[in-house]
């Protein structure tokens, strides 16, 4: 049986998630691993928006904030089970993306950048300032998902990090599968067409405005779910999850790894999530090195790390 590119990508991803824990010396690595997966989910959303459709967002952390705070607030105020809170957060994010996206997706390049930036800042500001509801800048507790206890009754006793490693790993595989399918679907083709040239796409009858909006909504849902999983895993969340730097992190992870491909984006998320952990050794130099890595990769590996490395391996040098 010959595997398609899509299937190969999923198999590689699943194998990596399954095999790497064999080499983990401590449960701290499970924690880093699950952080990588959670970040990857948001970054796949960016791949759909920026890599497929060619639109920028500097405010996607706003959606992550909505997803995260839905998990913190809905169980307490609405009596919703945390699992449904994830869904509620995704729905709110989708609706927000629809409402905000309709007017701002007409904007191009930097103008779209500043508009999405504004959206993200508004969300983080509301989260930081409405202390009575959100707990303000100090953050808020998030109820337990309760799934680990259920797994335990089935005879599988996992510690918190191990459980979240597996759970967010599965979520990531699901997210990657959806995104990879989207790539070859008629919608995905149309998105890539409008990325190439909006005018040409319109000429062949593609409803450009509707498609951009779809990509924006889908990527918002990814960001929202990523935020929810982060909140549930940490059992605590602060407005920083919706902050500008988090938005930039998402975009940087995607572009650093290779914004055109799902695997590349996951690779980027892995590198940028691990880098600060590695750099704590150099505490003082952390910022300096971080900035340097961002610049060097973008200058010397324009298509992102993974595509550049693959090209070198296959020997197709420029």
């Amino acid at each position: 049986m010959k595997l398609s590119n899509k299937q190969t990508a999923l198999v590689v991803l699943a194998a990596l998630i399954a095999i790497t824990p064999l080499f983990f010396p401590s449960s701290y690595y499970f924690r880093v691993g699950s952080l990588i997966f959670v970040n990857s989910i948001a970054v796949i959303g960016i791949v759909i928006l920026a890599g497929y459709a060619g639109q920028i967002s500097l405010g996607h952390a706003g959606f992550a904030g909505i997803g995260a705070y839905a998990c913190a607030l809905a169980p307490v105020h609405l009596g919703l089970h945390p699992a449904f809170a994830v869904v509620l957060g995704a729905i709110i994010s989708a609706v927000m993306a629809y409402v905000v996206g309709r007017p701002i997706l007409r904007l191009k390049g930097y103008y779209l950048g500043v508009a999405t930036l504004g959206f993200g800042i508004l969300v983080s500001m509301v989260l930081a300032n409405e202390r009575e509801i959100t707990g303000g800048p100090d953050g808020i507790q998030v109820p337990d998902l309760g799934l680990r206890a259920i797994v335990k009754t089935m005879g599988l006793d996992l510690n918190n990090s191990e459980f979240w490693y597996i759970f967010s790993g599965l979520a990531l595989i699901l997210g990657a599968w959806v995104a990879l399918n989207l790539y070859d679907s008629p919608t995905g083709r149309a998105l890539r067409a409008l990325h190439g040239s909006e005018i040409a796409a319109r000429t062949v009858g593609i409803d450009v405005a509707r498609l951009k909006l779809q990509a924006f909504i889908i990527s918002a849902v990814y960001a929202s779910i990523s935020g929810s999983l982060l909140a549930l895993q940490n059992k605590f969340i602060t407005p920083d999850v919706a902050g500008f730097m988090h938005s930039i992190e998402m975009v940087t992870m995607a572009v650093l790894g290779g914004v055109g491909s799902v695997l590349g984006a996951i690779f980027g998320a892995a590198i940028l999530t691990m880098l600060p952990q590695l750099l704590t050794v150099f505490a003082e130099y952390e910022m300096l090195l971080m900035g340097l890595v961002m610049m060097l990769v973008m200058i010397f590996m324009r298509d992102g790390l993974l595509p550049s490395i693959l090209r070198r391996i296959r020997g197709k040098d420029e």
């Binding site: 950048g113 003082e284 910022m287 090195l289 900035g291 961002m294 610049m295 973008m298």
Partner: peptide
């Protein structure tokens, strides 16, 4: 990085700003 897409340029200049901050702090 001449000719790189807008997103890459945004990341380069944000990288530069983090770098400058890191150096200043040192």
């Amino acid at each position: 990085a001449r000719g790189a897409p807008v997103v890459s340029l945004i990341i380069i200049t944000i990288g530069a700003s983090i770098f400058i901050r890191g150096v200043t702090q040192l």
